[in-house]
C-alpha cells in the first residue's frame, strides 16, 4: 500500500493514435499530404503587379459596396430583378408539380420496379449536373433570356424535390397506408388517404426551401445568358462599375436573408 512498496510507474506517456493506427500509413499519409500541398500551392501563379492593381480596385469595390449606386443603372437592375423573381416563382411551381408524380414513382414502397428505375434515373441526371451547365444547354436550345433560366431551375427543382419527397414517402408510417389498403382501396386511393396526409406538410416545407434556393441560383445562371439579375451583375462588373455591382449584391443579400427568414417562418407555420 505504501509508496515505497509500489512499483515504479512510467514517467512518459504518449497519446495512442486515434484514427490511423498503422505507423506506416500514418507517415505515408502525412508525407503524401505535405507533398500534395507543396505541389498544389506551386500551381498557384500570382501576378503581383496585377494584384497590386487589384488591391486598388478592391478598395473601389469596398467603397462601392458601402456607397451603392441604385439609380444610374436602375432600369437594368429592375429588369434583371423582375426576371429573377418571376423565374424563381414559376420554376418552383412547375418544378414541384412535375416532381410530385416523379417522387411518388421513385418511392420504393409504392412504385413498381420499372417505374422506380425510370424515376430514379431522372432524379440522378437532374442532380448530377450543375445548374449552370444545364443553363448552358438550355440557352443553346431556347435562346438567351429568362425562359431558358426558367427551364433550368425547373429541371434542377425536379431532382431536389422528387428525391426528398421519395425519401419521405419511403419513411412514412406503413401501418396507416396498410390500413387503407386493407379496406380494398385502389392505388390512387391509397396514395390519397394513406400517404398524402403524412407527406403534405413536408412537401410544402420543401417547396418553400427550394423557392429560396431557386432565387440564389437565379442570380447566377444569368452569367451564361439565362436571364435574371446575374446577367446585370456580370455586365456591371465587367464594366468595373463597382457602385452598381455593390447595389446589386446588397439587393441579392437582402432578398436572400428576407426569403430565408420568411420561408423559415412559413415552414414552421405549416408544419
Amino acid at each position: 500500500m505504501s509508496d515505497a512498496a509500489s512499483p515504479a510507474y512510467p514517467t512518459r506517456w504518449k497519446r495512442p493514435p486515434q484514427m490511423v493506427t498503422s505507423r506506416f500509413w500514418r507517415h505515408a499519409l502525412t508525407i503524401g499530404a505535405l507533398v500534395y500541398l507543396v505541389l498544389a500551392i506551386g500551381t498557384v501563379e500570382v501576378n503581383w503587379q496585377r494584384v497590386m492593381v487589384g488591391l486598388e480596385r478592391g478598395q473601389r469595390f469596398v467603397a462601392g459596396f458601402l456607397q451603392p449606386d441604385f439609380t444610374s443603372r436602375w432600369r437594368d437592375i429592375s429588369t434583371g430583378l423582375i426576371e429573377s423573381l418571376t423565374m424563381t416563382l414559376t420554376s418552383t411551381v412547375v418544378g414541384v408539380l412535375i416532381s410530385v408524380p416523379i417522387g411518388i414513382g421513385a418511392a420504393r414502397n409504392i412504385a413498381p420496379a420499372w417505374l422506380y428505375m425510370i424515376c430514379r434515373g431522372i432524379i440522378a441526371v437532374s442532380r448530377a449536373l450543375q445548374e449552370i451547365i444545364i443553363a448552358i444547354f438550355f440557352v443553346a436550345l431556347f435562346g438567351f433570356g429568362a425562359f431558358a433560366g426558367f427551364l433550368t431551375l425547373s429541371f434542377a427543382t425536379i431532382g431536389f424535390i422528387a428525391k426528398l419527397l421519395a425519401e419521405d414517402i419511403e419513411d412514412i408510417d406503413e401501418a396507416q397506408a396498410e390500413a387503407i389498403r386493407a379496406t380494398g382501396a385502389s392505388w390512387v386511393q391509397v396514395i390519397n388517404y394513406g400517404i398524402q396526409p403524412q407527406v403534405m406538410p413536408r412537401l410544402i416545407g420543401l417547396s418553400l426551401y427550394r423557392l429560396d434556393i431557386n432565387f440564389r441560383e437565379s442570380a447566377v445562371i444569368g452569367i451564361v445568358g439565362a436571364g435574371g439579375i446575374g446577367a446585370t451583375l456580370n455586365t456591371s462588373l465587367s464594366r468595373y462599375e463597382y457602385d452598381s455591382a455593390g447595389a446589386i449584391l446588397i439587393i441579392i443579400i437582402a432578398i436572400v436573408m428576407l426569403s430565408e427568414y420568411s420561408s423559415g417562418y412559413l415552414r414552421r407555420w405549416v408544419q
Binding site: 509500489s6 515504479a8 510507474y9 512510467p10 514517467t11 512518459r12 506517456w13 504518449k14 497519446r15 495512442p16 486515434q18
Partner: peptide, 28 residues
Amino acid sequence: TRRFPGEDIAKAFRLLDRVGLSAHADKR
C-alpha cells in the same frame, strides 16, 4: 502537446492503479 511533466504522468499511472484501471489507460 500532451507533454505533461514526468511526475504528473507517474502519479496518473499510480492513481489508475489505485482505482483498478491500470490496464485501461490508453482506452477512450
